[in-house]
Amino acid sequence: MLQFDSLSKKYGDLQALSEICFEVKPGRALGFLGPNGAGKTTTMRSIFGLVRPDSGTVRWHSLQITSEARLRFGYMPEERGLYGRMKVRDQLVYFARLHGLSAALARTGADHWLKRLGLSERSDERLDKLSHGNQQRVQLVASILHQPDLLVLDEPFSGLDPIGVDHMKEILLEEVGRGTAVLFSSHQLDLVEDICDDIAIIQNGQILRYGDLATEQASAGIQRVDVVGPPEGTWTSKAPGSIRYEFNRVKDQHRFLISQEISAREFLDFASAAGLVSSFSYTPPTLEDIYKETLR
């Protein structure tokens, strides 16, 4: 288990991290969310000793993290870093060996992954001859070839096409299934919702919300209500417990974010008074709802 304990870091006058506390658990994926510049990358870099905190600690299984411990970690930085002029396979073998794998195991692993990604034929090409998406796949493999116990990925989905996104998702879920503790940041909240067990939302260096996604959805105190039928009117602006309202013209759908205190029955009665309701749903908030509410 990875534990951030009151981690603080100041760059000049800028408080980059302020008393960061959260945990990443084995066999679970934690989605690390927040606007640009909120402190996500700084937090992740602190795990690898790339940032020296002013106070607080990062621990792995309750112990101070050493270079030795990091052999069992995998890291994919936001600014991708591989040797452009090195051959793809050599590169994977090299990074696996730097994580302690024997040369033979590293080669077997590299061949396995290259085959799986359909890159076997290009294994002797220089990395910079590959497309952006393929380079990113190689970078991912470089971070997981040694079967890490902790996997940290900074914006793994950025710049990927839909197929690439599916591959990445599949591999991340496999890693979680293997028992790896996975921490990744992303702005693609729908993806995070699909993959993550836990979430942490950070802003201005402070963790605003952290916990199990299902629990957070249940305890956010809000509900999402979608209504199709009655035309837009005064009922939409005067809806009970309404926090946010928007109209989806394509689906002809009214979307409400309302206080949990209003029951489904109550809201349906209210909507029906405005006209015939043809479709009605009363569901827990999406991650996007929670995210926006948290940062509001």
């Binding site: 270079s67 990091r70 970690f73 994919m76 930085p77 991708r80 870093g81 040797y83 990074f95 730097l98």
Partner: peptide, 17 residues
């Protein structure tokens, strides 16, 4: 310089001082 500008170094120094 190559390692620094391409950020390869960030990946490497996570295991190697």
């Amino acid at each position: 310089m190559e390692e620094k500008t391409t950020k390869v170094v960030e990946t490497i120094v996570s295991t190697l001082r």
